[in-house]
């Protein structure tokens, strides 16, 4: 296997995704790779037109601005490492957008946090991470560890 040169980190601003980003940056340092950060604003967050639920343009603008600020805030303190590449904000279905963005930045690895599934739901429901694991043509590293456990 050729070691990854471009790592895509999809984040959702949960504690797990911040850990995933730190993990990816540390790994990129060892591999001499770039880390591209992606946030996807889910389709339901923008309203579901079929159901007549649509958000006004100003609400959408506000949402996009909020996410942009949040993703910049995550990326900025890590830029000093020299490992941060593209910072991307998209809307759509997370599963599809992650795979699209992977192609665009030519990522050969995806690192992402996962909340995991507990009880009955974990047997029945697939997570975004699971879906990405199934569909991505590159290695996918899922982060589950409690904070501070890994270096």
């Amino acid at each position: 296997m050729n070691l990854p040169r471009n790592i895509l980190v999809p984040i959702d601003f949960s504690e797990y995704s911040e850990q995933a980003l730190d993990y990816a940056v540390a790994l990129a340092d060892k591999l001499d790779a770039k880390v591209h950060v992606l946030n996807v604003i889910g389709v339901p967050a923008l309203g579901v037109p079929e159901l007549g639920i649509a958000l006004t343009a100003s609400v959408i603008d506000g949402l996009v601005r909020e996410h942009q600020e949040a993703i910049d805030k995550l990326a900025a303190p890590r830029r000093a490492t020299g490992r941060i590449g593209e910072v991307i904000l998209r809307t759509g279905d997370a599963r599809d957008v992650i795979l699209q963005a992977r192609e665009e930045v030519e990522a050969d690895m995806i690192v992402m946090g996962t909340h995991g599934r507990r009880g009955i739901s974990r047997a029945l429901l697939g997570s975004v991470a699971e879906s990405v694991v199934r569909m991505a043509p590159c290695p996918v590293l899922t982060i589950r560890a409690p904070k501070g456990k890994h270096r």
């Binding site: 974990r122 290695p139 996918v140 589950r144 890994h150």
Partner: peptide, 12 residues
Amino acid sequence: VNHADRNVMVVR
């Protein structure tokens, strides 16, 4: 990926 309580890397 779904069940492990730690980090997992899936290699294609």
